[in-house]
């Protein structure tokens, strides 16, 4: 797990300022299939390797961020505002 997260708004900050929500999934359209909704709410991959997650900078700018990290190496490759993607 990374020790410092480079928030695009606040710069490098200790990970304790952030909370992790989980995989960065796109909310299905309201009329998407039941399977799509079920997958969105309940089904999670557990990848080894690159993984995108939603992190909240709750101890800082309070923006939601999309953090791309490698679950095997812990390397964080990209942090961007979740609304920007």
């Amino acid at each position: 797990m990374a020790s410092l997260i480079r928030c695009p708004h606040c710069g490098p900050r200790p990970r304790e300022e952030f909370t992790i929500r989980g995989a960065a999934l796109k909310r299905p359209a309201p009329d998407a299939s039941e399977d799509a909704w079920f997958a969105y709410v309940y089904l999670r991959d557990n990848p080894r390797g690159p993984h995108e997650e939603h992190w909240h900078h709750n101890g800082g700018c309070r923006r939601w961020l999309t953090v791309a990290r490698d679950t095997a190496t812990h390397a964080v490759s990209c942090v961007q505002d979740a609304g920007a993607s």
């Binding site: 909370t19 909310r27 939603h54 909240h56 309070r62 923006r63 939601w64 505002d81 979740a82 609304g83």
Partner: peptide
């Protein structure tokens, strides 16, 4: 609050 922030920033920016 966190939920509303998620809704406004991620679901419906």
């Amino acid at each position: 609050l966190r939920h509303l922030e998620f809704c406004t920033q991620v679901h419906w920016p």
